[in-house]
Design a protein around this nucleic acid. Structure first.
Lengths: 303, 303
DNA sequence: GTGAAAGCGCTAACAC
DNA sequence: GTGTTAGCGCTTTCAC
């Protein structure tokens, strides 16, 4: 024991892992770590697994199918104890690798109705429905929508679906050109907003499928001299830091990625302890009312 | 060989690592992954090590000394091939562990003059000097500064030093209350800006030590009805995405964390190949002129 | 060429 | 309790 201290002995975790068949490492795959949504998600995961002495192996997929598959294989090769995968494509090959891997997995940003994989998500259509209903309750009737990419079922399609559902439920028709697709970057929303404003009718409010895109949309309006919320109201989605950094502060749907991460981490830890897990966790959402949405008045003055 | 395909054999990287004494994993430690600076840094690292088939082990230190030390030890225990460490404290204990670890290391966000560890940094004092000189060249004389935390030598102290040096070089005295300390959060800068505006004199320009803080400062001004840049000019530092998302768009110092990450990754890869490395890489900076700084005119009109 | 054996640093299972 | 040994799944070496 004295010798241990003297020689500065450090145990070798690799050798231990080989015997124990346990690395105490969790693999996390995200498409883009610069996006605050995913970095907060990772923070949430880390906050919970850190307590249980697990660490993070980070895989950045860049939305490239090749990298997704590569990392999925690598997770197995490195014998990681579990993995959390966010917003990847879900092709046959993915399913195939996953089926072979047999390592505990939690998926977020994807519903997997046909699979036995635990998922954690918000109810995207309900959240979008609530957001648009709020706009309608504020008197708006001309409401446009900037959606996420339509190949992304939960965050692209579902949020658009919630928008349409709310409009339909209130008997409000959606004019041509009121729906534009973005790719969750601010730039894409800036352009989408431009396309919407080329339509015949002008919206008095816009529902945007992410806060970052909402800021892009607001910047378009700002650069055109259109005031928010006096001339048009903007509703975001996610409640990232940027929502309270923007001026006017963004009214948005709270969809805390940190909580997502925590929930996903907790589910995964349960699996690692062989405890029963929920097949589908849905994390609650709520509206955060700030300054970017105002009530619509029929005969509004131009000042 | 046919059997291999049939049984779906996957090699075990753990066993291989034990023999080869090589894990092909790089440890990266950052204080806060939600900060876009560090997430871009990680992206930069990944972009370069990915090509060489290394992967990332992520350690989030939360600025806590305990976690820093824990992860430094863990990096060794897990036999990682190399590590990149950003903006941590640098106490005796850190140096002690590092000395024992003997695993290739690159440090960023720290100058280590007394050590033989490769670092990559900007020249913070020169960059701040250039930024403030630009403000002066634009006719400003009443220039305040919101610095980072003073316990952070390169990003806190050095940038403040560059500000003072520029003021001194141009023979401009710094009034009491013109220097306020933030902690790199938008909120801290919001408050710091408030403190500065309680001073006897009001500045016509502010140099802020990070973009995120600059946005916080601009938000204070916005909320007080003070216009940027008409009433006061704001200069940022870093050139993060938020600098071009802000309105007015932020004039700032380009200090690309992605490039930092790439440079750090390249240095580390050289060490892993036993090639000679530069002891100190300094990545170039430059001014990015946008909209948040305007020329100061003596008799400016109030409209 | 192809095949057997040693050993990486640890843990677990056994003997004493 | 303390000491010895087998073996985790690979790579490397050495014999054939």
């Amino acid at each position: 024991m004295r010798i241990v201290a003297e020689t500065g002995f450090q145990p070798n975790a690799i050798a231990r892992s080989l015997v124990n068949k346990e690395t105490r490492i969790i693999g996390v795959m995200v498409p883009d770590i610069s996006n605050n949504f995913f970095s907060s998600l990772i923070n949430g995961i880390d906050s919970i697994i850190h307590e249980w002495n697990y660490s993070l192996f980070l895989a950045i997929s860049d939305e490239e199918v090749e990298k997704e598959l590569k990392y999925l294989r690598l997770f197995k090769e490195k014998q990681l104890d579990g993995m959390i995968v966010a917003s990847i494509h879900f092709l046959e090959q993915h399913k195939h690798i996953l089926a072979e891997n047999q390592i505990p997995l939690v998926v977020t940003g994807h519903d997997l109705p046909e699979f036995d994989i635990p998922t954690v998500n918000v109810n995207n259509v309900q959240a979008a429905y609530d957001a648009v209903s709020y706009l309608i309750a504020q008197g708006h009737r001309h409401i446009a929508c900037i959606s996420g990419p339509l190949w992304d079922p939960p965050c692209g399609l579902d949020r658009l679906g919630g928008y349409r559902k709310a409009m339909r439920a209130h008997g409000i028709p959606i004019p041509d050109g009121f729906m534009a697709e973005g790719d969750f970057t601010a730039e894409s929303a800036y352009e989408a907003m431009g396309r919407i404003f080329q339509a015949q009718q002008r919206p008095t409010a816009v529902f945007v499928a992410s806060d970052l895109m909402a800021v892009g949309a607001m910047n378009y309006l700002h650069d055109q001299g259109i005031r928010v919320p006096e001339d048009v109201s903007v509703m975001g989605f996610d409640n990232l830091e940027i929502a309270s950094l923007a001026r006017p502060m963004l009214t948005t749907v709270h969809n805390d990625p940190f909580m997502y991460g925590k929930a996903a981490g907790e589910q995964l830890l349960k699996m690692l302890r062989n405890e029963p897990v929920e097949r589908r966790s849905v994390v609650p959402h709520r509206l955060v009312i700030r300054k970017s949405v105002s009530a619509y008045e029929k005969n509004r003055t131009k000042e």
